[in-house]
């Protein structure tokens, strides 16, 4: 019975990826996908939606495990302690993965974790009330110049995407804004609608799926316009050097055989091209932006340097 099943699966594999040496992987037991956030969060929903499509590509089962906490450190530590056999992979998010490397002692070695694939890139945006007289970043800057410190921007805490975007804008435009920390995008939205703050930072997925009758988006902080918001001007286009996006993907230990990592990466790439998944992703408002593990790894140092620079601004702001 078991033999027959493995034989059938093996046949599937040969069809998929002609004759690999590691015949057993990944057929004989489930692959554990460690999600660094609680069930129901953006990363969790994204990966739970994606997992069945990767399963189909690999012919393996994937068990999603949530190990939330310490902005990912708990999950990354768990991953770095797992066997390097390709049966444990985890979610990987920037800027969290990068910023925790700045001035914090970690329970794992970030260099021992290798990205498998980037799934989405989600740029930040600034959003105001639909009826607000602010319609562009220039308006916002003019308002802040007139009354330094009086314009309040809701963020989700010190050193988060929104806060770093705000600091970049302060520096680029020479203005003074007041950051008000909230517990997440939804609290911030409520405060904006109630008129308790003037501006909130959201990522583009959240911003574009918000009710257009209540919210107005000023700019996106991407290098190139996101596929989710092709009509929204970037900050750079509006003349302010603000670039801030978060990326979500998957990682494995670097000492997992190269071949297995390559197959994982290929499986994710194929899953992301599946029309059925594209449909799910479109409904969830996922700004898909596949990048292979190698490409993503190569882009990391430059991002880290940028964050280090911004963190200096954070320290000055403290």
């Amino acid at each position: 019975m078991k033999l027959a099943r493995s034989a059938a699966l093996a046949a599937v594999f040969t069809a998929l990826s002609a004759g690999t040496a590691l015949a057993d992987w990944p057929a004989d037991r489930p692959i554990e996908l460690v999600v660094a956030f609680a069930p129901g969060g953006g990363t969790d929903i994204m990966l739970r939606a994606l997992a069945p499509f990767i399963e189909a590509e690999l012919g393996a089962t994937i068990a999603v495990m949530n190990r939330p906490g310490a902005s990912g450190e708990i999950a990354y530590t768990a991953l770095s302690q797992a066997e390097p056999d390709g049966y444990t992979v985890s979610s990987l998010n920037t800027p969290g993965f990068l910023t925790m490397q700045i001035g914090r002692t970690l329970g794992y070695d970030p260099k021992a974790l290798c990205p498998i694939a980037r799934v989405v890139e989600d740029p930040g945006t600034f959003v105001v009330q639909a009826g607000s007289d602010i319609t562009s970043l220039a308006d916002l800057v003019a308002k802040a110049k007139a009354a330094p410190g009086a314009v309040s921007v809701a963020t989700t805490g010190l050193g988060t995407d929104e806060h770093m975007a705000m600091l970049q804008l302060e520096k680029a435009a020479g203005i003074d804004l007041t950051a008000i920390p909230f517990e997440g995008a939804n609290e911030a939205k409520t405060a904006l609608l109630g008129g308790h703050v003037q501006v909130i930072g959201l990522n583009v997925g959240e911003a574009m799926s918000s009710d257009p009758g209540s919210f107005k988006v000023l700019a996106q902080f991407a290098e190139q316009r996101s596929t989710l918001a092709p009509d929204l001007a970037t900050a750079v286009e509006q003349g302010f050097d603000v670039i801030m996006s978060s990326e979500r993907g998957m990682a494995a230990r670097c000492d997992v055989p190269e071949e297995i990592r390559a197959r994982l990466s290929a499986a994710v790439e194929k899953a992301l091209a599946d029309p059925a998944f594209l449909d799910v992703a479109a409904k969830q408002g996922l700004p898909l932006a596949y990048q292979s593990g190698a490409d993503w790894t190569a882009a990391m140092p430059a991002r880290l340097a940028r964050f280090e620079e911004i963190f200096k601004l954070v320290e000055e702001d403290k």
């Binding site: 129901g40 939606a49 939804n186 939205k189 409520t190 609608l193 009710d211 209540s214 479109a282 969830q284």
Partner: peptide, 20 residues
């Protein structure tokens, strides 16, 4: 308003969003 007031409601929101 489209604004969830707790974690549970945030999940409900994603259930809505999955269907566009």
């Amino acid at each position: 308003l489209g604004i969830p007031s707790n974690n549970m409601m945030a999940m409900m929101l994603s259930a809505f969003m999955i269907h566009g």
